[in-house]
């Protein structure tokens, strides 16, 4: 079976499971909204937050909600040991990784489709002024975050203390994603947007994605066999 077919089969399965319960989208979206709200209390003064604060709040909400979604998606695979069943299948294991990554990324993008307009609305942030660049930053940032997160969540699926360890492993390694996301978004949100800077950050995110997806594809097989 071809690599891409496996990816499609695994991703489709994850999305069907999610449409049955909507649990991951619902809980992570609500959690993201709560993050935005909690940080708003810290950043908003005289009824307004500056543009950099809106960018920071958006990316923190994405990161936190992403951790929640990752943990839940792999809890599902662990519940009936279906992760083992997939590893037993005669398919290249990196294809399973890409399939899970595609599923996680789709869920994350759905959550972001709700959170981004909300941040734009609540903070009068001009997130849609340069919509293409903004979408590029969100897509590239989420891909990098989900790529690292999927590998670690899969690795930790059989560990006892996975709930506490996942954020501890994920956050230091995805710091470049957060910096690039926040700074790139802030550059777009300034009164006169700094497009070259935003593009530079986008480039950095794309190269981060390339390097870390390649590394994860290499590391998935040796870390999944005990």
């Amino acid at each position: 079976m071809s690599f891409l077919r496996t990816v499609a089969v695994v991703m489709r399965k994850d999305l069907v499971v999610e449409t049955r319960s909507m649990e991951v989208v619902y809980t992570s979206a609500l959690f993201a909204v709560l993050c935005v709200l909690v940080f708003a209390f810290g950043f908003v003064q005289d009824g307004r937050a500056d543009s950099a604060a809106a960018a920071a709040i958006l990316w923190i909400a994405i990161a936190f909600a992403g951790t929640l979604a990752l943990a839940r998606v792999f809890d599902r695979e662990r519940q009936n040991e279906t992760l083992r069943a997939m590893l037993l299948a005669p398919v290249p294991r990196p294809a399973l990784y890409v399939g899970k990554l595609a599923g996680v990324l789709t869920l994350l993008l759905v959550v972001e489709a709700l959170v981004v307009p909300l941040v734009a609305l609540w903070f009068q942030a001009a997130l849609f002024r340069h919509a293409a660049l903004m979408a590029g930053l969100i897509l590239a940032g989420s891909t990098g975050y989900a790529a690292v997160g999927t590998l670690f969540a899969a690795m930790l699926a059989r560990s006892r203390s996975r709930a506490s360890l996942l954020p501890l492993l994920l956050y230091p390694i995805t710091i470049p994603v957060i910096i690039a996301g926040v700074r790139g978004t802030a550059a777009l949100l300034q009164p006169d947007a700094d497009l070259p800077v935003a593009r530079a950050w986008l480039m950095m995110l794309v190269s981060f994605d390339a390097v870390f997806i390649t590394l994860s594809l290499w590391l998935f097989e040796p870390t999944m066999t005990e």
Binding site: S159, R160, S161, S164, T223, E226
Partner: peptide
């Protein structure tokens, strides 16, 4: 704290 197999992880 990772338990058995954490050397690879």
């Amino acid at each position: 704290y990772g338990g058995p197999g954490s050397d690879k992880l």
